[in-house]
Amino acid sequence: SEFQINEQVLASWSDSRFYPAKVTAVNKDGTYTVKFYDGVVQTVKHIHVKA
């Protein structure tokens, strides 16, 4: 599913667990740039983002 900029989502971290994050960019290659609550910004594949 498509997510929008500033949408609150759950994004997987390197430990494969999902954490609350905010979408900061929707990228043309189908990835999302997300910002976790601790301030870390990461680009993740769409399969690693869920509502």
Rank of each mutant, 00 (worst) to 15 (best):
S1L: 14
S1I: 13
S1R: 15
S1E: 11
S1K: 14
S1P: 14
E2I: 11
E2H: 13
F3I: 08
F3V: 07
Q4E: 10
Q4C: 10
I5A: 04
I5D: 02
I5K: 07
N6S: 03
N6L: 08
N6M: 05
E7C: 11
E7R: 00
E7G: 03
Q8I: 15
Q8E: 15
V9D: 02
V9C: 07
V9P: 02
V9W: 04
V9N: 02
V9S: 01
L10V: 06
L10Q: 04
L10C: 15
L10I: 07
A11V: 15
A11T: 03
A11I: 14
A11E: 03
A11C: 11
S12H: 11
S12T: 07
S12Y: 14
W13P: 09
S14A: 11
S14W: 09
S14L: 14
S14N: 15
D15T: 01
D15C: 09
R17T: 13
R17C: 15
R17V: 14
R17H: 14
R17S: 12
F18V: 04
F18N: 03
F18K: 00
F18Y: 12
F18A: 02
Y19S: 06
Y19Q: 07
Y19P: 01
Y19K: 09
Y19A: 08
Y19M: 11
P20C: 13
P20Q: 04
A21N: 01
A21F: 03
A21S: 01
K22E: 11
K22C: 14
K22Q: 12
K22Y: 13
V23A: 01
V23R: 00
V23Y: 00
V23S: 01
V23E: 01
V23C: 02
T24D: 02
A25V: 07
A25G: 09
A25H: 10
A25T: 06
A25E: 07
V26A: 05
V26S: 03
N27Y: 06
N27I: 02
N27D: 03
D29P: 00
D29E: 03
D29N: 06
G30H: 04
T31G: 05
T31K: 01
T31M: 03
Y32R: 01
Y32N: 02
Y32M: 07
Y32W: 05
T33N: 09
T33S: 06
T33R: 04
T33F: 05
V34T: 01
V34C: 02
V34G: 01
V34F: 00
K35I: 14
K35F: 07
K35L: 15
F36I: 03
F36D: 01
Y37M: 12
Y37V: 08
Y37W: 13
Y37L: 13
D38M: 06
D38T: 11
D38W: 15
D38V: 06
G39K: 04
G39N: 06
G39S: 04
G39D: 08
V40L: 11
V40P: 08
V40D: 08
V40H: 14
V41Q: 06
V41I: 12
V41P: 04
Q42S: 11
T43L: 05
T43E: 07
T43N: 11
V44L: 09
V44R: 04
V44I: 09
V44A: 03
V44T: 05
K45N: 12
K45L: 13
K45D: 14
H46N: 13
H46R: 15
H46Y: 09
I47H: 14
I47D: 14
H48D: 13
H48F: 13
V49I: 14
V49Y: 05
V49F: 04
K50Q: 10
K50M: 11
K50A: 08
A51L: 10
A51C: 09
A51K: 15
